[in-house]
Amino acid sequence: MYPYGPPPGPPPRIDTRQLRPRRRWFAVAGVIAGICVGVGIASFAMTLRSAVDSVDDGEAFASGRSVTLRFGPDDDAAIYVRSPFDARAHCEVVSGPSGATPRVTTPGSTFTVAKGGDRWERAFVLKADTDADYRVRCDDPRGTLTFAPGDDADVSSFVGGVVVTVAVPLAGLLTAAGVAIIVGVRRGRHRRWLEAQAYYGPGNAPPNTSTP
């Protein structure tokens, strides 16, 4: 005899297809995470490729020699030096069109590229008011350095690419985790509500506090 009635039986079986939100939302969370991680990987590859392509090591030349480059007011031309860099290295424009005013300046920040087993440091930036061919000669006191033409690296774009590489996958993973947690919690609440309906009957079941 049970003074308070028989003990409750096992909880009723609930068909998982009845639960809300549907399980497809877990797949949506996975897709969000996958897309964001893919964007981060693509951004990393593009940023790295852009940096490597900044140096044209196939046109490298020894100290005391020169190279002909075409650049103008809208171009970002630069000269890189293969490490180790000597601060006393010097580059100058030795020929160009009459009346042109090419300028050779030192960059305000350091940018180094690893390519083909060598490290190249951006040493000089070339600017001109006239789009034309210019002959640039570079040397150093010991005559041991190797120079190479290339593009003036946009450091802000490089940093932006790194930020995208990190931020987008992180945001995607956090968003996917949030969606999965919310869906899991609501499905659990809905399961308990359906069990209560099946056990007590629709008229005696406690109110459903979830929002499927």
Rank of each mutant, 00 (worst) to 15 (best):
Y80P: 00
D75A: 10
R65E: 12
T106M: 07
P107L: 08
S63A: 14
P107E: 10
D53N: 14
F61E: 00
D56C: 10
V55L: 03
S95F: 02
G96S: 07
T47A: 04
D56F: 05
S98P: 15
F85M: 03
A60F: 01
T101H: 09
A87C: 04
D53R: 09
V104D: 00
P107H: 11
G96M: 02
G58V: 14
S54M: 01
R82M: 11
G108L: 08
F61G: 02
R103Y: 05
L48G: 09
L48E: 11
S66G: 14
S43T: 14
L69K: 00
P107N: 12
D56N: 13
G99W: 05
R88S: 10
F61P: 00
P97D: 04
S109L: 07
S109R: 13
A45Y: 06
F71M: 01
A89M: 07
P84T: 12
D86F: 05
F85H: 07
A60T: 15
L69A: 01
L69D: 00
A87F: 07
R103A: 13
G64S: 10
V81N: 00
A62K: 09
E92T: 13
D76T: 14
P97W: 08
A87W: 02
S43A: 13
T110R: 10
A78Q: 01
V55T: 06
R49L: 05
S109M: 07
E59R: 08
F85R: 02
E92C: 04
S43F: 04
P102N: 08
T110P: 14
V94H: 04
A77W: 01
S43M: 06
S66K: 06
A100H: 05
S43N: 11
A77T: 05
D74N: 12
D53Q: 11
P97H: 13
G58P: 15
E59I: 07
L48P: 00
D86N: 10
P102F: 03
S43V: 06
F44Q: 08
Y80F: 14
